[in-house]
Design a protein around this nucleic acid. Structure first.
Length: 423
RNA sequence: GGAGGAAUGGCAGAGUGGUCGAAUGCACCGGUCUUGAAAACCGGCGAGGGUCACACCUCCGGGGGUUCGAAUCCCUCUUCCUCCGCCA
């Protein structure tokens, strides 16, 4: 969430910037400030009440010690009233703080100055494009047909055991999937990210920490009996590693990479665009996460973008990079670059990576801090990106690498797959 | 799953109803000494709210209660340890 201090100091700038999200934030910012003021005044009143009652208690203690029980008892009577008012005040305080928090949770992150205004994905700004789109013969197939033809992914079998959106990978398909995971992890660790394996179920506090809760509650699978959530991305457990910690600034840059399956309910998705591997309830992803000093988070973002570019270049897949517009920007992000691979047989772009700087928005919820030179605690910046999401990369490979002889395997992957063609 | 024990500052660890936000040691930061370092000595050293700055308030795993007063007593939840059972 946004820092109150920032809202106090730069309310108008923030409201102006939030217009890029097509949000008229003036009123909500005002009510946050109003509640903040109320909170502080109630707090002050409560503090004073507690101060006097603390003083009285100490006096009573001393009187008892010196054997003046009668005087002590007289003082005791005075405390009853204080107790009552402090109880009322602390209830009021709770109420106001709760309201304030609810409001703060509703305010999205402030877009970076470079974020273009816009309403939807149509207004995203293409900033880079690379890789040749292969010329496929007339009988080129979309990946779900290829999957069937070569018997490497079985969607129907998944339906039987789980439901739509839970494919079963078979034979060389399964092996290719495993190869991609290993290849991505190798690339990421070579770039300085430490590999880590994290739980795939997280508690409520973690969901709130990274911002999936409360606003995306319906997108996560929830295990009611234990009140745990299946992770929609490794971002959740990995970033929450740092919840409530004060990191040593010498540890910057903090870089992690994790492979996890990701679970998404995708309520409301339907139609031709969700065919095949385009949109799944369970998919694999290798994530990169960074915790950074605020002064260096944008350098970090750039280096993450460059890193992902390097991978796609090696895979020789045609891709483009978009700078997300205000209307398409995630709730908690300040600046996001989406990577899309061209799905030649479907003639459309598929998102395969999303690289974001959350600045202090997540860390404010998570309380990820560090001590600056003056021994003051400051919020760190958090970032993450996919490097990469598997299914659509797989779709891109299947479609772009199809030939009459079969599906060729990108050269860099051959050491991982142990074969160079699927036929 | 059953029985018992425990949870205190970065770590270790004292503290069982009243000047305890908390002894002490280690670690860390600053200083003295030294050519430099170590050692020794002196000083500092948790977080949050609040304030121009103080004052002041809150926090001893989480929540609730008893009391004029709770780290300390009671209830409850969570986690960890030991033993038993089960198990990849």
């Amino acid at each position: 969430m946004l820092q109150l201090q920032a809202i106090r100091e730069r309310k108008d700038d923030i409201a102006e910037a939030l217009k890029k999200r097509n949000l008229d934030a003036g009123p909500i910012l005002n009510s946050a400030l109003q509640l903040d003021e109320e909170r502080r005044s109630v707090q002050a009143e409560l503090d004073n009440t507690l101060a006097t009652s603390n003083k009285l208690s100490k006096e009573i203690g001393m009187l008892f010690k010196s054997g003046k029980a009668q005087e002590a008892n007289t003082l005791k009577e005075k405390t009853a009233e204080l107790k009552e008012s402090s109880k009322a005040l602390s209830e009021k305080l709770n109420e106001v703080s709760l309201k304030l928090n609810e409001i703060l949770y509703q305010i999205p992150n402030v877009p970076h100055p470079s974020v273009p205004a816009g309403n939807s994905d149509e207004d995203n700004e293409e900033v880079f494009r690379e890789g040749d789109i292969p010329e496929l013969s007339g009988d080129a197939l979309p990946h779900w047909e290829l999957a069937k033809k070569y018997d490497i992914i079985d969607f129907e079998l998944g339906v039987k055991i789980s439901g739509a959106g839970f494919p079963v990978y078979k034979g060389k398909g399964a092996r290719l999937q495993r190869a991609l995971i290993a290849y991505f992890l190798d690339k990421n660790t070579q770039a300085g990210y430490s590999e880590i394996q994290v739980p795939h179920l997280v508690n409520e506090a973690s969901g709130y920490g990274t911002g999936q809760l409360p606003d995306k509650e319906g997108q996560m699978y929830h295990v009611g009996s234990d009140n745990l959530y299946l992770i929609p991305t490794a971002e959740v457990p990995v970033t929450n590693l740092f919840r409530d910690t004060i990191v040593d600034p010498d540890e910057f840059p903090i870089r992690y990479t994790a492979y996890t399956p990701c679970f998404r309910r995708e309520a409301g998705s339907y139609g031709a665009h969700v065919r095949g591997l385009n949109r799944l309830h369970q998919f694999d992803k290798v994530e990169i996460v960074r915790v950074e000093h605020p002064d260096h988070s944008y350098e970090a973002l750039d280096s993450m973008v460059e890193h992902v570019k390097g991978i796609l270049r090696e895979l020789k897949l045609p891709y483009r990079i978009l700078r997300l517009c205000g209307g398409d920007l995630g709730f908690t992000s300040a600046l996001t670059f989406d990577f899309e691979v061209f799905s030649t047989a479907q003639d459309r772009w598929l998102e395969i990576s999303s690289v974001s700087n959350f600045e202090a928005y997540q860390s404010n919820r998570l309380k990820v801090r560090f001590k600056d030179g003056q021994k003051k605690t400051q919020l760190a910046h958090t970032l993450n990106g996919s490097a990469l999401a598997l299914p659509r990369v797989l779709a891109g490979i299947l479609e772009n690498y199809q030939t009459e002889e079969g599906i060729r395997i990108p050269e860099v992957l051959v050491p991982y797959t142990g074969f160079s063609i699927i036929d």
